[in-house]
Design a binder for these strands. Sequence first.
DNA 1: AATACCTTCAACCGCTGCGTC
DNA 2: CGACGCAGCGGTTGAAGGTAT
Length: 318
Amino acid sequence: MGRLPCCEKDNVKRGQWTPEEDQKLSSYIAQHGTRNWRLIPKHAGLQRCGKSCRLRWTNYLRPDLKHGQFSEAEEHTIVTLHSVLGNRWAVIAAQLPGRTDNDVKNHWNTKLKKKLSGMGIDPVTHKPFSHLITEIATLPPPQVPNLAEAALGCFKDEMLHLLTKRRINIQLQQYGGGGVPAGMKHEDGKDETIEKIKFGLSKAIKETGMPPLDKPWEPVGATSGYIGGVFGSFPGSDNGFHYELASLDNEGGASPWGQSMCMAAEHHHGGLHEKVAEEERGGEDSVNRKETRNGESMFNSECSLWDLQSNDLMNPMI
DNA sequence: AATACCTTCAACCGCTGCGTC
DNA sequence: CGACGCAGCGGTTGAAGGTAT
């Protein structure tokens, strides 16, 4: 037996809220609080379901909400926490006073993902795209094409954005305007773009001094590469992963914002992974579980936001 | 000026976890 | 212990406004 719907869909209004509805909801909540969302629309004289009222209140009407642009500090916090927590928007938003999970999620999806991609950083793993190439290069030749194909699938959207919206043309950058080699042209523009990306990446591997695909990677010292505006150095071991960015902004200058996006703090105590793992194992009591679920106690004075180590940035939850 | 395309973000949907009975 | 109801979460959608052609 399925669950009952949260409300009778036929009798409720949907879509944009009017100022009058906002006024009714706000004044009702100011007088009676937010207990029992199911009853609130009925008592407040609204033709809405309780869920819709709760969302409108928590995402828009709450008096403590900020509505303006995200600051650089807020963006920094989002990116740092996302690298550790993944898409746990409620926990991330709990660290940003006045911001809702919906705000954070929308800002991530519309701005920050593209910003990171534009800096050559994969927004899912928070590693530079060039690090992926290094990883591909460590594999024996038979595995390389398949992994590269899979990886390109993951980054397709971001790469397409770079290529189309930001007017970056791999064809011109990599081949000095010589054009795409024969056989890359397709009826479908996207397929052609993917072919350009594949060719560009393979070309980049050769030009950046990475080992040829038919030889094993030598993880001695650090090898530098330049892909998509990011210079990286890779000691070779995942555990020791560390890179510094000299990322370029749109004008070609070094961006301090970009430098911070990938850099793990040198110092570490406690660590967030342990806290998150602890949370997922279950807290000591239900109150604690509720607190950590809502992100209210996960980041206390013992574990500063910036006390992350390199491993913390290898988002293990994705 | 008209149209197509893109971006943003409010709102919705379905699922999950928790509390209560 | 299981069923049920509610609140909260993350993913997705679509309307509205902006920008490019």
